[in-house]
Computed example of a mutant assay.
Amino acid sequence: MKRLICVIMLVTLAFCAMACGKGLKTHDEEALYTVQDATGVNISFKEKPHRILPLGVGVPDIVMDLTGPERILALPKYFSDAQVSFIADKAKKVPIKTERIIPVEQIMKLKPDLVLVPYNADRTKIETMRSMGIKVFVVKAPHNMQEIEQCVLDVSEAVGEAEKGKSIVQNMKSIFELIKKTNSSIPVTERKKILAVSVEGAFGVKGGLFDDLCHYAYIENAAGNIELPTGARIGKEGIVKLQPDVILLPTATRMMADSKRKTAIDEILHDPSYMTLKAVQNKQIIALPDKYYRYCVSHYAAEAAYVLASSVYPQYYKQLQMPGLLAGIEE
């Protein structure tokens, strides 16, 4: 009898627990959506964030085209510079402008409902913000086009715009497909080898982002033919050995010569060390804004690949227009 009573009591308690459980919701059930960042941290949202603080180089580009300036709380000042930013015009509509590095104290005063930071951000800073109740989403740093596409998808989920993220990635693929279709008609004998040069020297480590950018533009990256440590630069002697068909320079670069400011193009054309270069002899020197090959770590990399390909092979792109053009080239 006692055993029967115990069984009845256990069953009764179980039913009571189930009945009570129906009126309770877990944190995930209350959330509109939950995402996981690059460090494995789960972040839940009851509504889409509307005071977003995107930090880093490429993340603000992505967030801007997902949400518009209305949901962005603040941006570093340099995003209003068309030379290095793809979103300069839109960035001007964001009310608060900050320095490139924002102290935690300032972030706290801004009261963001979501902060997106690059993977290499200060971990102590991240944990401090989280301990103060700020949602921090860590974004994996992309090193190639596929990783950029994944970055777009990750960020789009974090800001509650997953479908828009898929559309942006599809737009990237359309641009890459157009480049592939156009460049497939270029004879092998006309394929070019390019070398990117900055004030510090030539760059383009094999397997790096610029190397992959060249791959998608169907151009050979001259620096990719030698072993280079990440961040290393190639001096004049190395540039001469590489014998590029085309030299790529940033339009903003200026060098000193005879106490006068001259463009980097003019400097290279008149440097005796470069007289044997095919690029110099044929005057195949291209100047593009930095954003098209030095700071391109967002979905605008697809546009950068198109601009690079059309600059190196202009005769094949005269009658073409990039699908879903994301931004024009600023003069």
Score class of each variant (00 low, 15 high):
residue 94 V to K: 03
residue 98 T to F: 06
residue 101 I to L: 15
residue 116 L to P: 04
residue 98 T to N: 08
residue 126 I to R: 12
residue 93 K to V: 01
residue 84 V to F: 03
residue 103 P to I: 04
residue 118 P to S: 06
residue 94 V to G: 07
residue 100 R to E: 15
residue 106 Q to T: 08
residue 89 D to I: 02
residue 85 S to L: 01
residue 121 A to C: 02
residue 121 A to L: 05
residue 102 I to Q: 13
residue 109 K to N: 10
residue 96 I to Y: 07
residue 98 T to G: 10
residue 120 N to V: 15
residue 116 L to Q: 10
residue 112 P to M: 04
residue 100 R to I: 14
residue 122 D to V: 02
residue 85 S to F: 00
residue 84 V to G: 01
residue 100 R to G: 08
residue 110 L to P: 10
residue 88 A to Q: 04
residue 86 F to G: 07
residue 110 L to N: 09
residue 90 K to D: 10
residue 109 K to E: 14
residue 93 K to Y: 05
residue 123 R to D: 13
residue 119 Y to D: 11
residue 113 D to T: 03
residue 84 V to S: 03
residue 108 M to I: 15
residue 92 K to T: 02
residue 86 F to N: 11
residue 120 N to I: 15
residue 89 D to Q: 12
residue 87 I to M: 02
residue 87 I to R: 00
residue 119 Y to A: 12
residue 91 A to H: 05
residue 122 D to Q: 10
residue 96 I to S: 07
residue 87 I to A: 00
residue 124 T to F: 13
residue 113 D to C: 12
residue 86 F to E: 02
residue 105 E to I: 01
residue 93 K to A: 08
residue 118 P to K: 13
residue 85 S to E: 00
residue 121 A to Q: 10
residue 97 K to L: 09
residue 111 K to G: 01
residue 104 V to W: 09
residue 120 N to K: 15
residue 121 A to R: 07
residue 86 F to D: 06
